[in-house]
């Protein structure tokens, strides 16, 4: 099962490698990872997507707590969280195809960030599967480059 884990850590040098190293040596594969500072500049929040059963999740949570710089660890089940990823997609475009592409952009509530003679750069911020469907739709025009962030997530309400 795929889990989205929030790890709240002290914002100190080397913390990312402590966390990433822990996943690697305990045999948990990280699918995506996003890190940034929180409302408190001394604290960072990592959102990690990883695969594992309940027992794996329990063990990795406990191991994360053992890191001296870890303040809090929690699992964010999909139904209780809002989730976003961001992707930038550079698609081949000419006079003929540009309007088709723009239509797709509108359907997905994405936006065009840059237009040139032979390409457009599209920004989409959404849940992972939406980004994947849009990518699929754009594929026939020719995707020149694609970059995605890791997932970030917050608990609803509270």
């Amino acid at each position: 099962m795929r889990h989205t884990i929030s790890v709240i850590v002290e914002n100190k040098p080397g913390v990312l490698s402590r966390v990433a190293g822990l996943f690697a040596r305990r045999g948990f594969n990280i699918e995506s990872l996003a890190v940034g500072v929180t409302e408190d500049p001394n604290v960072s929040r990592m959102t990690i997507v990883a695969e594992g059963d309940e027992r794996d999740l329990e063990q990795i949570t406990k191991q994360l707590y053992k890191l001296i710089d870890t303040l809090k660890v929690f699992d964010l089940p999909r139904e209780k969280a809002v989730e976003r990823e961001l992707a930038l997609i550079k698609v081949a475009a000419n006079e003929k195809t540009r309007s088709d592409i723009t239509q797709i952009v509108e359907i997905f509530r994405a936006q065009v960030l840059d237009v040139s003679e032979d390409s457009v750069v599209i920004e989409i911020s959404d849940e992972a599967d939406k980004i994947e469907s849009m990518e699929k739709m754009l594929r026939r025009f020719g995707i020149k480059e694609l970059v995605r962030t890791g997932k970030i997530a917050l608990e609803r309400g509270g």
Binding site: R55, E58, Q59, K62, K66
Partner: peptide, 8 residues
């Protein structure tokens, strides 16, 4: 004393 040992 180490919670991570329990259930490991």
């Amino acid at each position: 004393v180490d919670p991570a040992e329990i259930g490991k």
